[in-house]
Nucleic acid binder design. Structure first.
Length: 311
DNA sequence: CACTTGACCTGTCCGC
DNA sequence: TGCGGACAGGTCAAGT
């Protein structure tokens, strides 16, 4: 499931809710989902929530409230602040969910996302797919659910080289202003013979793009997903970056994509797919040209595109 | 090396 | 209705 916009949606939700809370304990229901020492988190305070690529981190510190306002500002970079020693790192892979439940949720407010009434799974937590539960000292809980058990939760130290390597091999964040089409071109050209669709899903080229947004981005860019990176012109690279940013921004705006599993931190779906041009639309008529949207397979994954619009 | 396939898991949907 | 197979947002590791 979760690509950049979905993880970003969760991050934004959690930043509002759990920063400042103290962790009482972590309950591990599926040992294979969890790595590290959960005891290290007990009594620690959440000082920040960040996203990098499709990973989400919850920073914890034993230091009291003074650290919080400072930490809230910039959660992306690994700050030099030595009060942040540990982070709880999550990867949701295909079916992971992070659902936060506190007592006030009993009086469920009816909210709309993208004009749609939303479902709410908070009152059915935990369920048969719950793998890890973070319990906070105010009795609220954060549930990590994952039907397929591909996802993971790790308690790690920033000092550990394993974590640094994990984060360092990721490409740049596509929504950062400093990231230019020249950067994108340079990274893509390391994979000249790959089809562009495959190359933009490579996390070392750009961070956070998965199967849905790869298809949508190339539709925006009017570029055929099968074209080899080495054949693209500068104008194409510019279009790819613009298309990526459009798709990812729209994804965040509509609260992510819920094909089957994705829900935000409030247990509610996202509606980007209602606005998708090609993903999941085989046989539908293209919004732009009224031609037929087609599906092909690349590296074993479905790619959707409009042969008439994309060249 | 680059590229492909399989593995990790569970669930749903579709065709026979 | 039942059963087998394909497929599903992601990433590794191993094989060719």
């Amino acid at each position: 499931m979760p690509e950049l916009p979905e993880v970003e949606t969760i991050k934004l939700g959690l930043q509002r809710k759990i920063v400042g809370l103290t962790i009482k304990k972590i309950q591990v229901l599926n040992p294979k989902t969890f790595q590290g020492d959960e005891k290290l988190t007990e009594g620690k305070q959440v000082v920040g929530v960040w996203r990098r690529a499709k990973m989400l981190g919850i920073d914890i510190s034993s230091r009291q409230s003074s650290a919080i306002s400072h930490q809230k500002k910039n959660q992306k970079s690994l700050t030099a602040d030595d009060s942040v020693l540990m982070t709880i790192l999550f990867h949701l892979k295909m079916t992971g969910q992070l659902v936060y439940v506190d007592k006030s949720d009993k009086q469920k407010e009816k909210r709309l996302i993208g004009g749609h009434p939303t479902e709410d799974m908070r009152d059915t937590m935990p369920n048969s797919h719950t793998r890890v539960i973070l319990e906070f000292s105010d009795q609220s809980k954060l549930y990590f659910n994952d039907q397929r058990k591909f996802g993971w939760v790790k308690v790690v130290s920033y000092q550990s080289s394993a974590v640094r390597q994990l984060l360092e091999k990721l490409g740049p964040e596509p929504l950062e202003k400093e990231f230019s089409w020249e950067n994108l071109k340079a990274n893509l050209l390391r994979h000249k013979s790959q089809p562009i669709k495959v190359a933009i899903m490579d996390q070392s080229v750009i961070a956070g793009v998965g199967n849905i947004y790869a298809s949508e981005s190339l539709f925006n860019a009017k570029i055929d997903p099968r074209r080899k990176v080495g054949e693209l012109t500068d104008s194409d690279f510019k279009d790819v970056l613009k298309g990526l940013r459009e798709a990812l921004t729209m994804g965040i705006k509509h609260g992510g994509s819920s094909r089957a599993h994705f829900v935000n931190s409030e247990g509610k779906k996202g509606y980007f797919l209602d606005y998708a041009n090609v993903y999941g639309k085989v046989g539908y008529l293209c919004n732009k040209c009224k031609g037929k949207v087609e599906k092909i397979t690349q590296v074993g994954r479905g790619t959707y595109y409009c042969p008439n619009c994309q060249h």
